[in-house]
Simulated scan of single mutants.
Amino acid sequence: MKKTVFFFGICLVCIITLFGCASRSKALVVTEVLEHKGSMWGVAQPKWVDVVMATPNQKTLTKELGIDKHIWVLARSGENLDFLQTWVDQVDARAEIAASIKQVVIDTVNASLESESKETVEKALERYSDRGAIITIAGLNKETEWWTRTRSRFDQESDYEIKYNYLVIYSLDEELYQKQIETAFKDLGDEETTIKIIERLNEMTEIRVKN
């Protein structure tokens, strides 16, 4: 494929980026898009991609995509585009989302009960985790996908990091999703923790898939 370099002026000055930069101690100076899925045909990059690369959340993404559903973004990066495209075709989105839901439940329970005894926290984790497993994400739909090839520099002295980034959008009927999470966590006794879990699950948008 002809390698034409496109610089779209997407400069993200941030501490944490979408594709796994949270673990780095250095701040990201600049990220440039070198090419993307539409480059070969002269097709502009969709605005929703810019939204994901900046500050993705349910409100901004649903507005940009024009989808009145709950949205998840599965994101993965790597050096091999063919490998990432194979991943897109084979990924078990339901399993990835379910794993993220489980992690949200664990993190929220630990944070809510940090002042409680270890035994109390362990019992709550077991109780909430069992309920979280009830959420099946039935009715999930793949909406769209996009890839970019970017280069990033973490400070003025470091080398550029060049990689492909793949984004896949999945959606679920909002009413169905609400019903699933509310049914899963009702009648557990700790209303405050339950409310926090539901709030976080409603906000959950971005899912980073490990390489």
Results as ranks from 00 to 15, higher is better:
Lys179Asn: 12
Ser100Trp: 04
Thr86Gln: 11
Val88Arg: 12
Glu122Val: 01
Cys14Asn: 09
Met1Gln: 12
Val91Arg: 04
Gly38Cys: 03
Leu65Ser: 01
Gln178Ala: 10
Leu84Ala: 09
Lys196His: 06
Arg131Ile: 06
Gln156Lys: 13
Ile97Cys: 01
Thr17Val: 10
Lys59Met: 07
Ser39Ile: 00
Gly42Ile: 10
Glu145Cys: 04
Ala44Trp: 07
Gly9Glu: 06
Asn141Asp: 04
Asp107His: 11
Lys186Gln: 10
Thr31Asp: 12
Gln58His: 01
Val29Arg: 14
Asp159Tyr: 13
Arg131Pro: 02
Lys69Phe: 01
Thr62Ala: 05
Ile134Gln: 15
Arg24Thr: 09
Glu122Ala: 08
Val88Thr: 03
Ala98His: 09
Phe6Lys: 15
Gln178Gly: 13
Val105Lys: 05
Ser115Gly: 13
Ile162Met: 14
Gly139Trp: 05
Trp72Thr: 01
Thr60Gly: 00
Ile71Ser: 05
Ile101Arg: 08
Cys11Gln: 14
Ala44Cys: 14
Thr194Cys: 05
Ile10His: 13
Tyr128Glu: 02
Gln156Gly: 11
Ala111Gln: 15
Glu206Ile: 05
Glu119Thr: 10
Ser23Asn: 14
Val105Arg: 01
Glu116Leu: 03
Val13Ile: 08
Arg127Asp: 13
Asn211Leu: 08
Glu64Phe: 01
Phe19Asn: 08
His36Lys: 02
Lys118Tyr: 08
Asp190Tyr: 07
Glu199Lys: 13
Ala184Glu: 01
Ser158Thr: 14
Leu74Ile: 12
Asn202Ile: 06
Thr148Pro: 03
Leu176Gly: 09
Ile207Asp: 09
Ile207Val: 15
Arg131Gly: 04
Ile195Leu: 06
Lys2Gly: 13
Leu28Ala: 14
Glu192Pro: 00
Ile169Ala: 05
Lys59Gly: 00
Val109Ala: 05
Leu140Thr: 04
Ile71Val: 11
Val104Cys: 07
Lys37Asp: 00
Phe6Val: 11
Trp48His: 00
Ile197Ala: 06
Glu122Asp: 04
Trp147Val: 02
Leu188Thr: 05
Trp147Ala: 01
Ala93Thr: 03
Lys163Arg: 14
Asp107Trp: 09
Thr194Arg: 07
Thr4Met: 09
Val88Cys: 07
Asp190Lys: 06
Glu199Phe: 05
Met53Phe: 05
Arg94Leu: 06
Leu201Ile: 04
